[in-house]
Design a protein around this nucleic acid. Structure first.
Length: 556
DNA sequence: ATAGGGTTAG
């Protein structure tokens, strides 16, 4: 039997193997060796199999690996245009695609055609890579490919993504027969620039709209915080689909209206509830501080026996972190590990560390942190917060300096975490140092949160006057968190005069927050001033403020 | 064989 014949016969099963081996260069090379040993590995006369290997290996890394380059050099010369085009359309990294494209121009006797450009333009749009896209446009004009509907539409999309709506518009105006996709691409460009009026005008002028057009419009209204407009469009929509529903659900969730979100979700056809819809609901509840509802939705999802994706488990873990339930965390941890979730995804890893730390398993959080090949700021922050939570502020501060040594640039969240770690550990000088580093070296202007941390740092260390002076001189409007931190410090250091002053300010800022009244009453109680204690409690009753159940009245 | 749309962490 000739090896050529055998290879052709086994092509489908090899393709199946290739599809299964996704995400691992190791698997790919293993299969390559397997075929080589049986003299089955495709030489130039087996371009189809070669292109399967190529598209997989090129999709594994942003830049073409040496392995990919060696495969490319095995391509037959001249290479059929069809082969190149199908290879181009299977790639998702711009540098690899450009390598393939340039090879196409040198290896093929024929110039690129209508099918070669759109996949590349799409990648330029996604980045967006303006210069590359613009030179592709020049090339398209030179090759006289720019009159093609598909090519022009891809460029309209590209200019829209680059926020150059004028270029997109003039291209659109030169088209003799724009398709519904061309219209939609232009509309989406206007929506990206928050120009709802122009988008709506085009939408009304369009000869025919399809499902995507409606989805783009609804999403545009949601992203521009016009939920009523989105809802109106949704109600007018002839045939609702899951994308439109999910856009609207996400809009309600971001606006904090989980009631409307839930209503829509419940009305959805069960068949229409795809993974997007489920994960939008789960993370919506998690972000709105309703972890139990998030778990309930996840449980419903679990019953459908469908495969979770990364977003589902990230939302789920966020909910579990809020509950701090260790046995639930252990269940979720093993669920994530056994469900073919991509645990190299940085968001998944960060959430895993965060969940384990917040639920009390620091050992596991620590282990996961050290198993990451490339740590990022978020993974550091999760572990640092975990240490703070367990009273190990100084360990968190050590981790922060380790992070800087590793060459990572801290962002505003990282500074919030390290400042609260310093205050937790009582490291006043250290905290001031980082605060100055944030402004002077990292060029981050401090937010209300950062100042609140600094006030907390000073207050806890007993430097109440300094903290009060700081809060009075803030360049940003101090939010309740900063005043609250100072009130807590007054309570801790039994400073009645300043405490009264600060509490008065807080009662104006957030009259319904029972915690502030409780703190003031504790300050009085600590000084045995029981008359004032009952005055504060009367004030609470008058204003109808209720103590949050589970928060103690008694100072510990 | 080619173009337009949706979810996630610290």
């Amino acid at each position: 039997m000739s090896s050529r014949y055998e290879c052709q016969r086994s092509l489908p099963s090899i393709c199946t193997l290739l599809r299964r081996s996704r995400r691992s260069l190791g698997h790919l090379r293993q299969l390559h060796c397997f075929l080589l040993r049986r003299s089955l590995f495709p030489q130039p006369q087996q371009p189809l199999l070669l292109s399967h290997f190529l598209s997989l290996s090129l999709s594994l890394s942003p830049l073409p690996s040496p392995y990919s380059l060696s495969l490319l050099s095995a391509l037959p010369s001249p290479t059929p245009l069809l082969l190149f085009n199908s290879l181009l359309s299977s790639l998702s990294h711009l540098p690899s695609s450009l390598t393939v494209f340039n090879l196409l121009r040198s290896l093929s006797p024929h110039p690129p055609d209508f099918f070669s450009l759109p996949p590349l333009i799409r990648l330029c749009a996604r980045h967006p890579a303006f210069r590359t896209g613009a030179s592709l446009h020049a090339l398209a004009i030179r090759l006289r490919l720019d009159s093609d509907v598909f090519v022009s539409t891809a460029f309209i999309h590209f200019y829209g993504r680059c926020l150059l709506i004028g270029s997109a518009r003039s291209l659109f105006d030169t088209m003799s027969q724009p398709s519904a996709v061309s219209w939609t691409a232009l509309i989406s460009g206007y929506l990206r620039l928050k120009d709802l009026k122009s988008a709506q005008e085009l939408f009304d002028q369009m000869p025919e709209r399809n499902a995507v057009t409606w989805n783009v419009m609804i999403d545009g209204y949601v992203k521009n915080a016009d939920l009523d407009g989105a809802r109106r469009l949704f109600d007018e929509m002839p045939e609702k689909n899951s994308v439109a529903c999910t856009c609207l659900i996400d809009g309600f969730a971001k606006a904090g209206d989980m009631g409307s979100a839930r209503l829509l979700f419940d009305q959805m056809n069960h068949r229409d509830r795809d993974v997007f819809a489920w994960s939008t609901m789960i993370s919506g509840y998690a972000q709105n501080g309703c972890p139990c509802d998030a778990l309930f939705i996840f449980n419903e999802f679990h019953k459908t026996k469908r495969k979770p994706d990364e977003c589902i488990v990230v939302g789920l873990m966020s909910a579990c972190s809020q509950l701090g339930n260790l046995s639930l965390a252990k269940w979720i941890d093993s669920y994530v590990m056994t469900r073919s979730i991509n645990t190299n995804n940085s968001r998944v890893l960060t959430s895993l560390i965060d969940m384990n730390a917040k639920c009390g398993d620091m050992e596991r959080a620590h282990f996961l942190f050290h198993s990451i090949p490339q740590r990022n700021i978020a993974s550091y922050c999760s572990l640092m917060q975990g240490y703070c939570l367990h009273g190990l502020g100084s360990k968190a501060v050590d981790l922060f300096s380790h992070m800087i040594q590793e060459g990572l640039n801290p962002d505003e969240v990282a500074f919030t975490v390290v400042l609260s770690a310093c205050s937790q550990a009582g490291l006043v000088e250290e905290g001031k140092k980082y605060f100055n580093m944030m402004r002077k070296i990292c060029n981050i202007s401090p937010s209300g949160d950062h100042y609140a941390c600094l006030v907390d740092l000073l207050g806890r260390a007993g430097k109440l006057e300094e903290a009060y002076e700081l809060i009075k001189l803030l360049p940003v409007e101090p939010h309740a968190g900063a005043w609250g931190a100072l009130l807590g410090a007054c309570r801790w250091h039994s400073n009645i005069e300043l405490g009264e002053l600060v509490a008065k300010r807080l009662f104006e800022l957030e009259p319904q927050n029972g915690g502030n009244y409780v703190a003031l009453s504790n300050i009085y109680a600590n000084a045995n001033r029981w008359g004032e204690v009952s005055e504060v409690r009367c004030m609470m009753n008058e204003k109808g403020v209720r103590k949050v159940p589970g928060c103690t009245w008694i100072m510990t």
